[in-house]
Amino acid sequence: MHILAWALQILFVPLLAPLGVGIINKIKAKVQRRQGAGLLQPYRDIRKLLHKDEVISEDASFIFNIAPYIVFGITLIVGASVPLFTSVIHLPSSDLITVVLLLATGTFFLALAGMDTGSSFGGFGSSREMTLSALVEGLFIASILVLVILHRTTNLYLIAGSVHLDYADLIAVALAGVSFFIVLLAETNRFPFDNVDTHLELTMIHEAMLLEYSGKKLALMEWASANKLIIFAAMLVNLYFPVGLASNLQFGTIALAITIFIAKLLVVYVAIAVLESVIAKLRFFRLPGLLFTAFILCLIAIGLVK
């Protein structure tokens, strides 16, 4: 059972991540009264890309070639490190600081790869990504800091596993949860920060960095960003609403915990899809304002913690 739980913990993120993207796209299509592509379309896209040859710019250096493996690999490690359906098993990397550091490393390589071929789109994609990351990273830490202060630990599993909370602390956790949701939107290139569906090169952030990629490496990049979405969603629902995580590794408990986890993820996905259907993207220079508002929420939350 232990091995099975570990296998699930490691494979859950990469196997189910594309489905999450499919679900968001399907809901968005339905809200726009379109039929939309099937739920499994992201899997088909990845399979298609994995079968394709690549076109690589003559100006690309080794960075361009290794970045997809690094970015994808990091999402695998982080995916296995964050609490998903149980708070019992954990890796040495299941630590807040480590996770933030790993994700930042992924972003760093992504931005390097964007600039590597010297195309103008990649350049401004990277520039925008770094501008945002510099702001989002701080908010990321601040919103988790509330939990760290509350639980006196940076271990994600201990945070997710603790259930005894003061009633007054719930407000602090809720406020921090809202600002973490904003972090999620920024880190996973969602509205109002970025639009993954656009064809307008000049407005892109994340996609602009991927424009030079094709075939297998593009598949890895796309897969990695799907992984990132599920990782952030899992952190949101399990750290700020740690309900229903399995506290032992019995088969029945895990099955129930997985069901609850998926239900919680669905809530996040529906929220993202609805948000993307009802608001427009913010002007780029307005984004720091939004992040700053979220930061103030975190400060209030920290002040509320006893």
Binding site: K28, V31, Q32, R33, N195, T203, E276, S277, A280, K281
Partner: peptide, 16 residues
């Protein structure tokens, strides 16, 4: 115009 501001509701309605 609404779609290019990434306002999906307006884009879908305009197309319709």
């Amino acid at each position: 115009i609404m779609l290019d501001a990434s306002y999906n509701f307006g884009g879908a309605q305009g197309a319709r």
